[in-house]
């Protein structure tokens, strides 16, 4: 999705970045026009694939946090840029500064250069802690989230909708305004899943499950991709995230259910060889519990299920190892338990 909106988008992105930071700290008066000038000077750049133009609260929070931290950091950066030229000019050989070859210490200055960074780190650390808790990818963004199970493959993503019973390849359809819980695993090497305009990335690893909660408050097509190098097709491993209104989403599900193709264990096995998918595929149905079976195929002891999606005994994949779905084990297969 090449952005074609040109300079105005650039400006919006940068000003948005600043505006996000403004309410939280007093912005130095000169910074705004300076950065606005910079923005005008930038060649046209689209942010269709970037968190600089967030389309949901998570990405927006990340952008504003970016701004807050940047502004706070100016406290230590600006003095250097101001003081260094002055010092260089004044104390250059032949300059006006008094030569004091043995001057080596001053308690006041010492307190300043240790004290300011310490105070700054306290401020930064507080901001970090709050943002990290609020922006925790595991934190659900509301009741009744739409659960989508994501399987990272070479070089495509498989999306399973347990609630709707449909599945897609390289297309993530989402309703606007409803909390989304993505559960991720990998059927191959480790990958890193991101939809920049909605939320940050999280790794998808075989035999384990990670989670990404997000919410879209804009409709439209947003690019998502893998950012962790995984071979020849890596550069083109992206997919479209299509956010639509709740009604449109219902309609989309209904259409999906009319498709011919279904996804069973055999069809999944055919997806495993590395390949780039040019056109998204929609499956009208999939074998229930497929996601857990995929995890279990790598880590039988860790197969757990979230309610209602326990592994199906007797399913015809080697993955179909029966494992009791207890809450303890559900916890076990999150990476945190393995740290």
């Amino acid at each position: 999705m090449p952005g074609s909106q040109g300079g105005s988008v650039t400006l919006r992105g940068i000003v948005g970045l600043l505006a996000a930071a403004v309410p939280k700290i007093a912005l130095p008066k000169i910074a705004l026009p300076a950065i606005a000038l910079l923005a005008i000077a930038l060649p046209g750049a689209g942010f269709a694939g970037s968190f600089l133009e967030p389309a949901g609260p998570i990405a927006a929070g990340q952008l504003s946090h970016f701004g807050v931290i940047s502004m706070l950091m100016l406290i230590v950066i600006v003095p250097m840029f101001v003081a260094l030229p002055i010092v260089l000019y004044r104390y250059r050989r032949g300059g006006k500064g008094t030569y004091r070859p043995d001057w080596e210490f001053n308690w006041g200055l010492e307190l300043l250069i240790w004290g300011v960074p310490v105070a700054l780190v306290v401020a930064l650390g507080t901001a970090l802690w709050r943002q990290t808790i609020v922006g925790d990818p595991y934190r659900a963004l509301g009741p009744d989230p739409l659960v989508v199970e994501v399987v990272a493959l070479d070089w495509k993503f498989l999306f399973l909708y347990p609630e709707q019973g449909v599945a897609t390849l390289d297309l993530l359809a989402l309703p606007e305004g409803r909390p989304i819980t993505l559960k991720l695993t990998s059927g191959t090497v480790m990958q890193s899943f991101i939809i920049p305009r909605l939320a940050g990335q999280i790794y998808a690893m075989a035999g384990m499950q990670t989670q990404l909660n997000l919410l879209a408050d804009e409709t439209g097509d947003f690019t998502g991709r893998n950012t962790q190098y995984n071979g020849l097709g890596f550069a083109t491993q992206s997919f479209t995230t299509r956010v639509m209104s709740a009604d449109d989403f219902e309609g989309w599900v209904a259409t999906a259910k009319t498709q011919q193709a279904g996804l069973d264990a055999a069809a999944y096995a055919r997806l495993l060889p590395p390949a780039v998918v040019n056109e998204p595929v929609i499956y009208a149905r999939f074998t229930p519990g497929l996601f857990d079976q995929i995890i279990a195929s790598f880590a039988p002891g860790m197969a757990g299920g979230h309610a209602g999606h326990g592994p199906q005994a007797g399913a015809d994949t080697p993955a179909a190892i029966t494992a009791p779905a207890t809450s303890h084990q559900q916890h076990d297969h999150t990476p945190e338990a393995a740290q």
Binding site: R93, V121, T132
Partner: peptide
């Protein structure tokens, strides 16, 4: 969060060093 803050804390001694170098020039003949 803990590791993030620990990372920021490294910035303190690093920042101190940078400003120590700046102050070394003060009173010198560069």
């Amino acid at each position: 969060a803990i590791f993030g803050i620990a990372t920021m804390i490294i910035g303190v001694p690093t920042g101190v060093k940078v400003y120590d170098w700046l102050l070394t020039m003060v009173g010198g003949r560069i």
